[in-house]
């Protein structure tokens, strides 16, 4: 009980204060690539300093510590109820320690009780597998980037987007254009083609657990990812929307089956403060290794 609680608090702490190495490296490359003396370059320099400072002080990279999204891979027979109860306690304790902002508001009354626990907060997604391993992934997704996510229903006449991959490309790039700097770029896109409205967004978010430098095993999706990344970075939106060379750090896409009547393209935007981590847990709930 205590070991699992401690492990989850440490997972929350590290996710909130440290960027994963693949993201850090991508930001350093974008800083080197940006035109010297521009406000885009100075924005990336401040971002760079911020990453170092957050880790050193063990304080949140961003004050918006976001929606708390747990994804648990577990064997058959794993006690999910116990896990969820422990996760809620860990979230409350991590909030008291200042790893998380008091960030959860009752949508009807407007009250914020300061615990970060309530209906839908945190969310825990379980996935059973045949292996005995238990792993827990966590994403903290801020509101600024969540607000610029978008879901398109094809065909979209205004954007001349039909029900094909070219139509998908058009709406994804429109989402990048509309987001400008509002989602704290340079950003990362998670995309799902197909599914119902809820599944589409859910699958788009799961893409954020891929590493930035991986490649999509599906050739068509891989080509789409590379094309969107290249094209978005030619638009000149730049860090924070200041103008500049790096608009996106990555694009990750998946597809889900759809109904004949529906063709949704769901796009989730992750800010540069791409807080994702994961751990493998031992039998007593202790952390045995880190996933990112």
């Amino acid at each position: 009980m205590n070991a699992l609680n401690d492990s989850l608090i440490e997972l929350i702490r590290r996710t909130s204060v440290e960027l994963p190495d693949d993201v850090n490296q991508a930001l350093i490359r974008s800083l080197e690539n940006e035109k010297k003396g521009t406000i885009a370059e100075s924005a990336l320099k401040i971002i760079d300093q911020n990453i170092v400072l957050a880790k050193r002080k063990s304080q949140p990279i961003c004050q918006d510590t976001g929606s708390i999204l747990f994804y648990v891979d577990c064997p058959v027979g794993f006690d999910q109820i116990h896990f969820e109860e422990t996760a809620r306690v860990a979230v409350t304790e991590a909030t008291k320690k200042g790893y998380l902002r008091q960030n959860s508001v009752d949508s009807l009354t407007g009250k914020n009780d300061g615990t970060n626990v309530g209906p839908g907060a945190p969310t825990v997604h379980f996935h059973q597998h045949r292996s005995p391993e238990v792993s827990v992934r966590l994403a903290l997704k801020g509101g600024g980037c969540e607000n610029v996510g978008a879901q398109y229903s094809l065909p979209n006449e205004k954007l001349h987007a039909n029900r094909d991959l070219d139509g998908c490309r058009k709406v994804i790039l429109d989402a990048v254009l509309q987001a400008q700097g509002k989602g704290c770029g340079p950003g990362i896109l998670g995309v799902c083609i197909g599914g119902d409205r809820a599944t589409g967004y859910e699958f788009s978010k799961q893409q954020f657990f891929r590493k930035l430098d991986d490649r999509n095993p599906n050739a068509e999706l891989d080509a789409l990812e590379q094309d969107i990344l290249k094209t978005a970075n030619e638009l000149g939106i730049g860090p924070m929307g200041f103008g500049g060379k790096t608009t996106l750090l990555g694009v990750k896409a998946t597809a889900a089956n759809r109904l004949p009547a529906s063709f949704f393209v769901s796009i989730s935007y992750m800010c540069w403060a791409y807080r994702r981590q994961g751990v493998r847990l031992g039998g007593a709930g202790e952390i045995t290794s880190w996933l990112y």
Binding site: A43, I46, I47, Q49, N50, L53, A54, K57, Q59, P60, I61, C62, Q63, G142, G144, G181, C184, M240, F242, C271, W272, A273
Partner: peptide, 13 residues
């Protein structure tokens, strides 16, 4: 006045 989004530590200093 545009501040750098996400730079919570630099700005808290």
């Amino acid at each position: 006045l545009h501040a750098i989004g996400g730079a919570a530590q630099v700005l808290a200093e």
